[in-house]
Amino acid sequence: MLRFLTGHYGYWFTLILLTIGLYGMIFKRNLVKKLIGMTIFQVSIIMFYLTCAAKFGGTVPVLIDDSGPAAVNPAAYINALPHTLMLTAIVVGVATTGVAFAIVITIYKRYKTLDEDVLLERMKKDHDAPAD
C-alpha cells in the first residue's frame, strides 16, 4: 500500500494537477481563472508524459562519445520521444492561451465584466431587449 502511494508519486501529482485544473475550470466564476484552470490541466498532461519517459538510471539523451551508432545503448538514456511530443503540446498551449486571451479581451470590451454570473445577466438583458 505504501509502495502504491510513494512509488508512483509522478502519477499522483498528475492526478492532483488534473483535479485542480478541472476544479478551476468549473467552479471559478472569473473567466481568467477558468483559463488558468485550463492551463493547469494542459500542464498536468505534459507532466504525465514526462513521468512516463523517465527510466531508472537513465541519463539525458545527449550523445557524448562519437564512436558510431553501434556503441549506443538505448537503455542508458531516458525516452526522448515524449519530450518532443510535449514540445508540440506546449506550443499548442501557448497558441490556445493567445487565442483565449484575445477572446476574453473582446468580451471585456463589450460587456465590461469578466465575472460569469454578471455576464450571463447582461446577456439576458441583451436578449430581452432584442437587438436583431
Binding site: 490541466f41 494542459q42 490556445t96 483565449a100 476574453v104 473582446t106 446577456m123
Partner: peptide, 29 residues
C-alpha cells in the same frame, strides 16, 4: 455581440477535448 462568449465556451470545451485525446494516446503509447 454574443459571439465571443460562445467562442470562449467552445474554446474551453474544445481544449478540454484535445487534452483528453492527448491523455488517451499517451496511455496507448
Amino acid at each position: 455581440r454574443k459571439a465571443p462568449i460562445a467562442a470562449f465556451r467552445y474554446l474551453v470545451m474544445g481544449t478540454l477535448a484535445g487534452c483528453f485525446y492527448l491523455l488517451g494516446i499517451g496511455f496507448l503509447y
